[in-house]
Design a protein around this nucleic acid. Sequence first.
DNA 1: GATATAATTTACCCAATAGTAAAATAGGAG
DNA 2: CTCCTATTTTACTATTGGGTAAATTATATC
Lengths: 201, 201
Amino acid sequence: MRDTQNKKDEIISMAMEVFAKRGYEGTTLDEIAGYCNITKPAIYYHFKNKLALYEYVLCTQFEEMAKRILEHTDSGSAEERLRAYIVTFGQYLIDNPTFSAIFSREISIGGATLPQGCIDELSKTLKRLSKILEDGVKEGIFQDENPFLVQMMIVTPLSAYHTTKPLRQKVADIVDNKYLTVEFADVVDSLAEKIISAIKI
Amino acid sequence: MRDTQNKKDEIISMAMEVFAKRGYEGTTLDEIAGYCNITKPAIYYHFKNKLALYEYVLCTQFEEMAKRILEHTDSGSAEERLRAYIVTFGQYLIDNPTFSAIFSREISIGGATLPQGCIDELSKTLKRLSKILEDGVKEGIFQDENPFLVQMMIVTPLSAYHTTKPLRQKVADIVDNKYLTVEFADVVDSLAEKIISAIKI
DNA sequence: GATATAATTTACCCAATAGTAAAATAGGAG
DNA sequence: CTCCTATTTTACTATTGGGTAAATTATATC
């Protein structure tokens, strides 16, 4: 048999890019197939249908993201773990540049079509964040905060900042030039400090 | 002539709902027409095509939002104006419940397809925010901050929080129940205090 | 009431696209 | 070399959905 795993991986990788750029509805399997130098029915050999491919891509990403966050936030003070939570998420976006568009779009429809697997992974990260915030309160360093809001304050500005580079160029004249050239990694660090200082007692 | 403006307004209103729920690509003109109890070609009498309808809806909303923000942030101390900026945006989402989904989705694709009119309106709000932050620095109460990031810290958590109510229900068991029932207006106030405390000296 | 015009419908066309059936091809095992 | 199975292609179907032309209906004005 031929090396099908490579081709399957290529399909997944290209699918991510196209889904990120065009959204689920705007994506055509022909476009994905084209990037992989295969034809559409070859995709159907590897995946049941378009939705299954999308959900596979989505779940893989959510799993990987949750795994990384949990790994990096399991020890240290509450403040250290909160910082790690934010920075790890930011680093995940850097390492997976197509994820932020897909993630933002799913959030924008309230996760209505998010497969259960993704919701479970999201739950894991939220649970971890809740624990960190709770521990911070016990340590006497954090105020009591709504974890939903803190979660939103972390993931949405970062993924949006990541996707809106072209938009910032278009409104460049409005703002001092020094802010246009900021590295995303610095934005992540800056956000982490702001959030921590916002919830510290 | 019949009262076409009412019907046109109805089309716009229904179009907003459907675009919010399904995204641009996922929206069909037949669905919009159905909600208005008319047929598809009647939409074409009022609008050139699907894109023109979408852009009309989008621009109308962006204009109204920018207008409100500018009106409410033109006097007071930098801190007062920053708080007003955040609260006015939050109130706009409350008053226009379909806007947050549309807005988030546009942000998620980096504003790539955003018509120039919307970019101009967005620029106005960003310019205002930059001015507020600058004034705060002059007043000696704010640190020097990246206005792009502050803008993201305001608009993205609020619009995402607003759209993800169904998602929060799905992960309800993870988090203390008291956080599930928080009113959105309180979330807005809470975010405003956090952002202000984060950038204060 | 007749006429003009505004608004809407019926009946289409056409392109795009998800999905399928069956043939073709490639490569490994015997 | 031959057979078997995995993989992919060719050729197709069916449907959806944006868009249009022309007929139709309603309404205001004279």
